[in-house]
Amino acid sequence: MVWDQDKEATKDNYASQTIVLDQILHELDTLNIEQKNNQRFRVDVSAEALPALLSLLKGRAGYTQLSAISCVDWEDEFELVYHLWSYETKVLVSAHIRIQYTPAVYVSVYDIYTPAGFFERDIYEMYGVYFEGSPMMEKFILTEWHGPAPMLKSFDTLKYVNDMFNWQEYQPDWLKEIQAKGGKVVS
């Protein structure tokens, strides 16, 4: 693998990029590519085809870095977004998939990208989406939390806080003086 830093090499990265993506498109028929700008591509793919797409992108197109996996709760299904960055062509590809709400289960891509371990564990904690085959599915951040997965849209954090906590009254003298003159706290 050649790590080329020359600016010249990146000039026609867009052209080469479309060629590689075109080839992959032919191999996977359930693919929809949208180009946002020279360095951002959005790929919509079916959930079954994603692991194959990722291994192709990593093996053939030089997408060595998994930047992040984001999860979005659309209340009837989950969207998982895999952000891949290529150090060679300087292009970011976001692969979007949709998975069903219950049971929320998907396969791990840890064997393709090691950083996936952290993100999959995080999504499992925050959304309850289980990743089969991921080596670290135990809790990390919410080890002492027993409620529902907090990032779900159905979890109302404000209601939880009002049920759980008290508020402290704050009535300093300066506020009383202002209130005596007819002022008030705007909320």
Binding site: W145, T157, V161, F165, W167, Q168, Y170
Partner: peptide, 14 residues
């Protein structure tokens, strides 16, 4: 009183 994170489910308030 919870400050910036008054809405947060994860922090203690008072």
């Amino acid at each position: 009183n919870g400050g910036m994170y008054w809405q947060s489910y994860a922090t203690a308030k008072v």
